[in-house]
């Protein structure tokens, strides 16, 4: 029996070797595009023009970044980054407030028509958002919210379903005893929400916040449609407009290719940092959010 178990373990060791090797190769392929762009952004013109380019720059230089971020007459990249940051943070704050308030109400408060509204919300999720963009354009123009960031900060968090579900689920798991003690002490609805339940569901708020941040940072179509002026654009739109002039305006030591790669790297960096720092929350968000809906 013991021998069989040992043989079993060795068998698994062989298995483990195979899995790890295969996953390592897949990971490398997965990382290749990003690594290539980051490394190209660190190369100077001569290295970019070399016949046999390498994956690791031989003489790393920050010239591409310097050029991209400081030549404000041609690149509005710092401004675009700031726009993205504003939009993302604004949407995160609005989303966290609306989702936690509504989640609390649906999980904890009894009021007439609560279940009715909840069923309605579930049913509305199955209706496709067809024709939405055209009507949204008209609506935003009517409200004078086109070409404003406020319009988008109100629009992004209005798709409430996933965040609402996550927050409701979290409020439902606040221990009953905790609340009962507070109610005996005479806590009203607001005290219950702010002092008792909200501290307990902070994990849910973090999940909602990071998903919203990543979503808004990368959102392309609606931002493109609602913002007409380059100085309002977010970075995920701005990077698509780089080709054309970047090759044209490059100085003697730079190639447009390297400068564009630098811009892409700068656009990716914030979400990659958020993602790596917060990776376990992403896992939690996936298991709490869309899979539970």
């Amino acid at each position: 029996m013991a021998a069989a178990a040992r043989r079993m373990r060795r068998y698994f060791r062989g298995d483990q070797l195979f899995f790890n090797l295969a996953l390592l190769i897949i990971s490398l392929i997965c990382l290749l595009p990003v690594v290539w762009v980051v490394s190209s952004s660190l190369k100077d013109r001569f290295e970019l023009y070399m016949a046999t380019p390498s994956l690791i720059p031989r003489h790393p230089t920050l010239a591409n970044y310097e050029w991209m971020l400081t030549r404000a007459d041609m690149s509005r990249l710092p401004l675009n980054l700031w726009n993205s940051f504003q939009l993302a943070m604004g949407s995160v704050i609005v989303q966290c407030i609306t989702a936690s308030m509504a989640g609390f109400a649906f999980a904890r408060l009894d009021f007439r028509g609560r279940d009715l509204l909840f069923y309605l919300l579930i049913m509305l999720m199955f209706i496709p958002r067809a024709g939405g963009l055209m009507a949204l354009y008209e609506l935003m123009e009517f409200l004078h919210l086109r070409n404003t960031h406020i319009g988008l900060i109100l629009w992004y968090p209005s798709a409430i379903s996933v965040a609402l579900f996550i927050m409701r689920q979290n409020f439902l798991s606040v221990p009953r005893e905790l609340e009962e003690a507070a109610i005996i002490d005479g806590a009203g609805t607001w005290r219950l929400f702010l002092n008792v339940d909200l501290p307990f569901v902070m994990g849910g708020v973090v999940v909602v916040a990071i998903f919203e941040f990543v979503y808004v940072w990368g959102e392309y179509l609606v931002a493109l449609t609602m913002l007409d002026f380059p100085e309002l654009e977010t970075v995920s739109i701005a990077v698509t407009k780089l080709r054309g002039w970047s090759a044209h305006f490059t100085s003697s030591v730079l190639a447009g290719y390297g400068a564009e790669c630098a811009a892409y790297t700068v656009a990716m960096l914030p979400v990659i940092i958020v993602f790596i720092l917060m990776q376990r929350w992403f896992m939690r968000g996936l298991s709490e959010g869309i899979l539970k809906m």
Binding site: C30, W36, G218, T240, E260
Partner: peptide, 21 residues
């Protein structure tokens, strides 16, 4: 983490990265 990383990238940037490749 590595498998999920491309998902968090802005779609436009992810596509442009490939255009460079």
């Amino acid at each position: 983490v590595i498998a999920y990383m491309p998902v968090v990238l802005p779609t436009s940037v992810a596509m442009l990265v490939w255009a460079k490749l």
